[in-house]
């Protein structure tokens, strides 16, 4: 079974992919469909859903659906960019640790362990608060607290692959060390890392929403978490202010998780095919 067949076989993954594409379209279409600042007041405050405003308005008369569309941009941006940073950092540390072993490995792994023990969300809150809230500080904070699992995974992959016979064969053939890392090790280590990264995007989006909910969002960009946090005082009267952005976060995260699981299912049997004779 090829990767594509495996993935297409998984209905959940396909549904997730469809929703995810929808969110991307939302983000892309935001400036076209709602060509105004989502922070602007557009009508009477606290209008319920329906009528001129499909998802209603908030206490300052801002259009909720416009916020949802524009907020998709922030969620996706933070999710993807912070994951990229975290994965880059984690893979470098893990690869060096796993390939060279010894004292280097010891030091790097102690360091990683330390970061894993620190209460990550509290650290993220601190970092954003101290560096002043903004897209850059949020990306940095999320990357700083999420790289350790990547490093551990990359390390264990490199460690086992390092002693695989095909890597030893490449050494004997005179292949250079950089080429061995790039051609022999990395492609074989990548699959589990890609799977982990796909799930990390979802976690990053959740973390960003929690930060924004606590008022640590970028003040220049509207985000789903901020919308819920800001509407907390009136949420008994205006349920739509929390329900719609919450659904947006929920569906996006769910979709990414489903795609991630689809990747896991489709990629793993391919790797585990060896030696299964009774």
């Amino acid at each position: 079974m090829t990767f594509r067949q495996g993935f297409a076989h998984n209905r959940g993954a396909l549904a997730g992919l469809a929703v995810l594409i929808g969110v991307v379209v939302l983000a892309a279409a935001a400036p076209v469909l709602f060509p105004f600042d989502p922070w602007d007041s557009r009508g009477a405050p606290l209008l319920p859903p329906g009528g001129a405003f499909a998802f209603g308005t908030d206490m300052l008369g801002r259009d909720v659906i416009a916020g949802i569309f524009h907020g998709a941009r922030v969620s996706l941006f933070i999710g993807v960019v912070s994951t990229l940073f975290a994965v880059a950092l984690g893979v470098v540390i893990g690869a060096v640790s796993g390939y060279f072993g010894g004292a280097v490995d010891d030091v790097l792994m102690r360091f990683t362990e330390l970061f894993q023990t620190v209460p990550s969300f509290v650290l993220a809150v601190l970092l954003v608060a101290i560096l002043t809230p903004g897209l850059a500080s949020i990306v940095l904070a999320i990357a700083v607290v999420t790289w350790p699992p990547v490093a551990r995974l990359a390390r264990s992959e490199f460690l086992t692959l390092r002693h695989r016979e095909f890597v030893e064969a490449a050494v004997l053939s005179g292949v250079s060390t950089p080429r061995i890392i790039l051609v022999e090790l990395l492609p074989n280590a990548l699959t589990p890392i890609v799977i982990m990264a796909s799930l990390m995007v979802a976690t990053a989006i959740l973390t960003e929403s929690a930060l924004s909910f606590l008022g640590l969002g970028d003040p220049n960009h509207i985000s789903w978490g901020y919308m819920i946090g800001a509407a907390r005082a009136v949420f008994r009267q205006a349920w739509w202010l929390s329900v719609f952005p919450g659904l947006a976060i929920f569906l996006t995260v769910l979709a990414i998780n489903l795609v991630g699981e689809g990747l896991t299912d489709a990629l793993n049997p391919h790797l585990r095919r060896r030696g299964a004779t009774p």
Binding site: R164, E165, F166, R274
Partner: peptide, 11 residues
């Protein structure tokens, strides 16, 4: 090498 599966890079 010994292991005909582990000794060839699957990719």
């Amino acid at each position: 090498f010994q292991d005909p599966f582990a000794s060839l890079n699957p990719r």
